[in-house]
Design a protein around this nucleic acid. Structure first.
Lengths: 251, 251
DNA sequence: GTCATAAATTGATTCAGGTCAGTTTTCTTC
DNA sequence: GAAGAAAACTGACCTGAATCAATTTATGAC
């Protein structure tokens, strides 16, 4: 129960003034690896975005949108964590990404969602009709640049994920994943070293191209080595971040 | 020598009217998996792009731009093949992408090239000052949409690459790579089944997260199985595309 | 709280692919 | 065309992760 509260704001979104400011649009590079690059939108631009947005809530394990569905809406995560996955013909699930506050969901290539998006925790998000957004962007070139940059950033992140996932062993992949989670989570604002794992081992395994058993063993290794400490299956304590980064081959 | 001629137009670009039409802008989705989606620019838009572009040539193994360099130019491949890679602290090379005619090179997140781009074959490309391009895009929202879609498409391709690379064995990865090359090469226009491999085994290995030996063995396997035939180290004949697609787990 | 079920962990075995070594082929330069 | 160098291939061996099986721990319903 504590864990859920850590991850999301559970209070109902009743009065509009009470909701947090639009995350991604206010700081599209909040999670950039380059901390110098933060691009802000003007008040007017934020207001215009809020005007076409609706705040929506999803409960744990709810589908936000289904693979193959007509992509009419774009979402911008406010709080909580989501994942996207495709279902293969043989029934396998293939996790393609995890989304955190400020991340953008649902942009598609050809008007069709390419993956199913599902809430892993209670989740709140801005929901924008794609058409309205496109119209807004068309009128405001600056807004467009923000989107381009955001996409570019995501592209780089996807490339980075490929490269690290492909060339590292299980221990390094898991170490890297933990660090990524740590940096992604809202709790990163306070400088505590607790990481919450809102997804199943199965999802992590799939995302990293490993088996669930390999995840367990890698966590065990990292714990034995004194880099982390497991506090139940959903929480980790980072004991030695310097060593973790080395284990993830970031150094 | 024959091979080089297959891949690139070697004649000097003297008279402007003789150069081929701007590839990507004319058909940004030429290599999309969804053949229905082809978005064309108007004559005016193409002319505007050509006006700010200069056609440049690179010889084999020439660096187009270096990692970390100030990203002042964006390139659009006309003919030839390029690769991008990062150099790791330990001297390792990490190949992040291969670029074909109509592909876009050099878009960066923060004004700095994130990888080195190198020509694998003689290469011609449109070279555009980023500033001019940005100004053009700012004035013409339609152009912007083209770029957004292109980026979106590349993002999906990167995700697809991750997913396939991570979950498949060596044989499947190599089969998939061969098919991707086949579909990417200019020769795909004629329906011949020859695939040219302009890059080294080392580069393929790195891109797919395998060893060079594993590439050799996988090619051997595919040849033994009657799916392909090796015609020297730089050329392959596809004998059974249906089976190749199955081997690549595309079906 | 107890029970039922799902998830996570641990151990034993197997196998794909990495590594190392050696050979053959191809490319380059004279 | 010949010689040297680089790249590609092949084989032998070994490591790391998948798989299978069993146990422990956590979660959710009552």
């Amino acid at each position: 129960m504590d864990k859920d509260n850590d991850l999301t704001i559970r209070q109902p979104v009743a009065a509009k003034p009470k909701i947090p400011p639009p995350s991604i649009f206010a700081k599209p590079f909040a999670r950039s690896t380059d901390p110098g690059v933060v691009q802000l939108l003007t008040e007017d631009e934020q207001a215009a975005l809020i005007a076409i947005s609706r705040v929506v809530e999803f409960r744990r394990h709810t589908v936000i949108y289904p693979e193959g569905g007509r992509s009419r809406f774009v979402y911008n995560v406010i709080s909580g964590v989501a994942e996207t996955y495709c279902l293969l013909p043989d029934g396998e699930r293939r996790v393609s990404s995890f989304l955190f506050p400020s991340d953008l969901l649902g942009l598609s290539e050809n008007g069709e969602y390419v993956a199913t998006a599902q809430a892993l925790t209670p989740l709140t998000a801005y929901k924008m009709p794609f058409e309205d957004l496109a119209r807004l962007v068309r009128r405001d070139p600056d807004l467009d640049v923000v989107f381009l940059c955001k996409l570019c950033h995501e592209l780089r992140q996807a490339e980075r994920h490929t490269v690290t996932a492909i060339h590292n062993d299980a221990r390094a992949r898991v170490a890297g994943f933990i660090l990524w989670l740590w940096r992604s989570e809202v709790t990163a604002l306070t400088d505590d070293t607790t990481v919450t794992l809102p997804m199943l081992r199965h999802d992590i395994a799939d995302y990293l191209g490993l088996s669930t058993e390999a995840i367990s063993r890698a966590l065990h290794q990292l714990e034995t080595g004194g880099l982390i400490q497991r506090r139940g299956p959903r929480a980790l304590q980072l004991l030695n971040i310097q060593e973790l980064r080395r284990a993830a081959r970031e150094i």
